[in-house]
């Protein structure tokens, strides 16, 4: 019998490597080769709009009332959804679907094409503006602290938390987290929580001393968690007011241009101010010089 030049171990390693290569090749071959579009029609309207008119549009969102939520019948609801649907309705889009994920995944969802437009709750900033196309802000968020009833530690600002060595709860990958890390000089006293209700639960179980969230969110949480916490007086002074826009991928900037045109119409008609008041957002802040936009 002819003996193999390789030991059994070597043969196993070679076949394992071969198997890996085969699997990888199979995966790569699944991806369609990108071909240049031939005879592509000259678009008279943004490509995203054409597609959305035909197939409907998917809103990427978090479940975050009163800004974004899904109604019992599956339709998008909340302030940002209503504004976006009104604008898109005027642009000729009639079908609206939703993809609800956590906050960080909503961007991944947009980039991967799982959603067409990410609505509500995204702040234009230096990092995001170059890589995504932001609409004009639909509302402005002001931040407040949820604290223990009576605010026993007297926490009113991030500096107060730092001075008293208190723990802050916040949702991850958010502007407020970034600023808190700067003020605290590190993240040891910052507890990242997956959602807003977890913020209240963390407060209730003494895992954090304060939970920072948009004021309107805390008002809604107070309705569903009566007596569990109180909203500290005033807005958090070390946090800026933050513009909140809808966003699409950067290649759909032409869509945003058209969107802004219709949005301006709604502002002129007074519709945006009316609905802002209804949902408790301060419409006047939209024209604040402090507001950072793209």
């Amino acid at each position: 019998m002819k003996s193999s030049p390789f030991t059994r171990k070597t043969r196993t390693a070679i076949t394992a490597a071969f198997g890996t290569v085969l699997l990888a090749a199979g995966l790569v071959s699944c991806a369609p080769a990108s071909e240049p579009a031939e005879d592509a029609p000259v678009a008279s309207e943004p490509a995203l709009l054409t597609a959305a008119k035909e197939n409907g549009i998917i809103f990427g969102m978090t479940d975050s009332p009163p800004t974004t939520l899904v109604e019992a019948d599956g339709t998008p609801g909340g302030y940002a959804s209503l504004v976006t649907m009104e604008v898109l309705g005027r642009m000729g889009i009639t079908e609206f679907n939703t993809l609800v994920t956590d906050f960080p995944s909503s961007i991944s969802g947009l980039v991967s094409g799982r959603s067409d437009i990410r609505i509500g709750g995204l702040t234009p900033n230096e990092e995001r503006c170059p890589v995504m196309a932001f609409t004009k802000p639909s509302h402005v968020l002001t931040y407040a602290f949820a604290v223990q009833p009576g605010n026993p530690k007297g926490l009113l600002s991030l500096q107060d938390l730092k001075d008293t060595d208190s723990k802050l709860g916040t949702q991850g990958a958010t502007t407020q987290e970034t600023i808190a890390i700067e003020v605290f000089g590190g993240d040891e006293n910052i507890v990242i929580l997956p959602d807003r209700q977890s913020g209240i639960d963390a407060l209730r179980t003494d895992r954090v001393d304060a939970f920072v969230a948009p004021y309107q969110t805390l008002v809604q949480l107070l309705e569903t968690n009566p007596g569990a916490f109180e909203i500290a007086e005033g807005y958090v002074p070390d946090l800026p007011i933050l513009a909140q826009s809808s966003v699409v991928t950067s290649e759909n900037a032409d869509f945003v241009e058209l969107y802004n045109k219709y949005f301006d119409e709604l502002v002129e008609e007074g519709w945006v101010e009316e609905i802002s008041d209804e949902y408790g957002f301060d419409f006047d802040l939209l024209s604040s010089p402090e507001l950072a936009t793209c």
Binding site: D63, S64, Q197, T224, A228
Partner: peptide, 22 residues
């Protein structure tokens, strides 16, 4: 639940968000 599929955990989280009572 992390990819938006409305399973039991997703529905539970949704109820927490809207009703509290974790």
């Amino acid at each position: 639940s992390l990819i938006g599929l409305a399973d039991l955990t997703f529905r539970g989280n949704e109820l927490r968000t809207h009703l509290g009572h974790s």
